[in-house]
C-alpha cells in the first residue's frame, strides 16, 4: 500500500506535531506550520491527531494513490482534484486504487495537509516523523519529496480501519466518495486581504521607541518573499530600540517576533532555531500561528495586542473545540 510521487510540487514534506524534548541539544522542533490543519486531517481519517501527514506548500504535487484509501485534505485550498474532479476538503474521502490526486492553483492560504488512514509508514527519528530539512533527518529520507518517491502507507487499524470500511460500503463506481459533513476550521487567509494576527508583548517590548511600539500595533506589515518554514520576515515599518540593548542568547519560542538590527521583524515559526539573541518585541498567540502559517509571502498582516490571559483563554477554548469536534466525528460513525 503506497503513494507514488508523479510530481513533487514546490516543497512537499512529511511533518507531524514536531520533535519535542531535544531542543536542549539544539535540535529544532520542526513539524507542521499549521498544526491545527494537520490535527484535523488526522482526526477525520481516524488516526491519532499527531500522526505524520504531508505538508504541501504553495504549488502542489501530483500523486498516484496505489491502493483504495481513506484520506483527508485540510489547510489552504490548493485546488485538489482526483482524476480531474474537484475533491472537497476538511472531510474524509475514500479513493479508489490508481486514482491521481493532483493539486493546482492556490485559492486560499498556502499550505495543504494530506493525511491518510493508517498513517505513513516511516521510522520516527527522536520520536517524530517531521522532516528536519537542514539536518537531513526525519520524515521521508530527511528531505522534501522528489519525483518517483514511493511513500509506504500503514494498514488502517482501529478507528482508521472502521472509517475506511464505512466509506468502502458507501462507494459507488466514481473516482471517490466523501462525507456530507465537514470539519469547522479557522478562517483561511485570502491572498489580497489583510490578516489580523493577535500577539502578546515580548520580553523586550518596553525597550523599543514609543513610535516603534505604536507602529507595531497600528501599521501593516508585508510578509517578505524570503519567508520560509524557519520564519516570516516582515517589511513595512522599521522598528527601533530606544538605545542599544546588550542581549545574550536565550531560548525563543514558536511565534516569537524578534527584531534584528535592520529593524525588520521576523516571526519565528516551525523550523526556528532553539535560541536567539535579538530583542523580542512580541509573541504571536498560539491559536493564531496556524492562521499566520497560511498567509502567503507578499500578503499583509497587522498585529493586535491581547493579554497573556486572553491568549491562554483562546488556546484552552480552541482545545475544547477540537475535543468537541472529535466527539462529533466519532458520533458520525456509530
Amino acid at each position: 500500500m503506497s503513494i507514488k510521487v508523479l510530481q513533487p510540487g514546490l516543497l512537499t514534506s512529511m511533518q507531524d506535531l514536531g520533535r519535542y524534548g531535544y531542543q536542549k541539544h539544539g535540535v529544532i522542533v520542526s513539524g507542521a506550520m499549521d498544526t491545527y490543519s494537520l490535527r484535523i486531517a488526522n482526526i477525520l481519517v481516524g488516526n491519532q491527531e499527531g500522526e505524520g501527514a504531508l505538508e504541501i506548500a504553495l504549488l502542489g504535487p501530483s500523486l498516484e494513490i496505489e491502493k483504495d484509501s481513506l484520506l483527508a485534505i485540510t489547510g489552504g485550498n490548493l485546488s485538489p482534484t482526483i482524476n480531474g474532479k474537484v475533491v472537497p476538503m476538511w472531510r474524509p474521502v475514500y479513493v479508489k486504487a490508481g486514482s491521481i490526486l493532483q493539486f493546482g492553483a492556490c485559492k486560499s492560504g498556502c499550505r495543504s495537509y494530506l493525511a491518510i488512514a493508517g498513517g505513513y509508514d516511516l521510522l520516527e527519528v527522536m520520536g517524530s516523523k517531521s522532516t528536519y530539512l537542514r539536518a537531513g533527518i526525519g520524515g521521508f529520507q530527511g528531505r522534501a519529496l522528489q519525483r518517483g518517491d514511493v511513500l509506504a502507507v500503514k494498514s488502517p487499524h482501529g478507528a482508521s480501519l472502521d472509517r475506511t470500511e464505512y466509506f468502502k460500503r458507501k462507494y459507488s463506481p466514481e473516482s471517490f466518495v466523501s462525507s456530507s459533513w465537514y470539519a469547522g476550521r479557522p478562517p483561511i487567509p485570502q491572498a489580497l486581504r489583510l490578516t489580523t494576527i493577535r500577539m502578546t508583548r515580548g520580553l523586550q517590548f518596553e525597550y523599543f521607541t514609543a513610535e516603534s511600539k505604536s507602529q507595531l500595533l497600528n501599521a501593516s506589515f508585508q510578509v517578505a518573499a524570503q519567508s520560509d518554514r524557519m520564519g516570516y520576515r516582515l517589511s513595512g515599518v522599521n522598528l527601533q530600540l530606544e538605545s542599544p540593548l546588550e542581549m545574550i542568547s536565550e531560548a525563543v519560542a514558536l511565534g516569537t517576533v524578534q527584531v534584528p538590527p535592520d529593524g525588520n521583524p521576523i516571526i519565528l515559526l516551525a523550523d526556528r532555531q532553539t535560541v536567539g539573541g535579538y530583542p523580542k518585541i512580541g509573541q504571536v498567540a498560539i491559536v493564531d500561528v496556524p492562521i499566520l502559517a497560511q498567509v502567503r509571502p507578499g500578503a499583509t498582516i497587522q498585529f493586535q495586542e491581547i493579554t497573556l490571559e486572553e491568549a491562554e483563554r483562546l488556546y484552552i477554548a480552541r482545545e475544547n473545540d477540537i475535543q468537541e469536534l472529535k466527539t462529533a466525528i466519532q458520533l458520525k460513525f456509530l
Binding site: 456530507s180 459533513w181 465537514y182 470539519a183 469547522g184 468537541e324 469536534l325 462529533a328 466525528i329 458520533l331
Partner: peptide
Amino acid sequence: LEAMKLFNEVE
C-alpha cells in the same frame, strides 16, 4: 447546519 463544530450539508 453546524453542530459540535461539524458542518452538515443539507441537500
